[in-house]
Amino acid sequence: MIATQRVTDSLIIVAILLAVWQGLNLMVGDTALPGPAATLAYLAHLVPSARFAENALATLAAFTYALVIAYGLGLAIGVWLGAHHLSGAVGEPLLVALYSIPKITLYPVILLIFGLGISGKVAFGALHGILPVALLTMSAIRNIPPVYLKVARTLHLSKWQTIFAVFFPATLPEVVAGLRIGFTVTLLGVLLAEMFASKRGLGFLIINAMSLAQSEEMLTVAIMLFVFAVLANSLLLWMEHRLHRRN
């Protein structure tokens, strides 16, 4: 009952969004905002093109590198700050402060250091992603109930057994939450970088389309990124919920 109602409600929401879109289209005209049908038609035309593949691959490559760096450094910093009490107490407010500033203001600095190529995009994406991964990993380690450590000692676990059999599974749900948020903001960082100063990538395609007044292309790329972000996030959220349900 509830499940079918849920599906119906989700469909209703999608229908409302499409109707709003169509309504806006009728209000402002095709040149400013193409309707859903026109956008879908353009999608079928754009996706097979070489131009799209080239730019999508450029974004994907920058995003992948940025994500690997963000996850690696974020986990390392998080473990360090979580395991070493003084470092954590000193470092946490600094990371929180960095997390909530508008990082776009630092992009020119990144460009001056790393240049206009892919490395600047990667660095900017990673800069976004490191912080939530580090903060949530640190919090996960701090939140391990102290009684788990006592149990490990009464069961005569070695240091490595304690780490792999107790600490690792105990922290996993919150760490995965950090990885999910890291995924989102790293993608945002890479796209922002491409929108500001780049000649390649999907962020560039959007800005380029806007300056050429090609609304269909702009909207199509934005919506594809939207769908990609939603799907990836749903997958990670599903993993997180599975881990949480157990815990």
Binding site: I13, R180, F183, T184, L191, M195, A209, A222, L225, F226
Partner: peptide, 24 residues
């Protein structure tokens, strides 16, 4: 109930990519 999943994923979307659309 219907909006909960939408709210949960909302901040996963780089909403900012719609800024050029708004400008248009």
């Amino acid at each position: 109930r219907a909006l909960d999943p939408l709210l949960a994923t909302y901040y996963a979307v780089p909403i900012f990519i719609f800024y050029p659309v708004m400008v248009a």
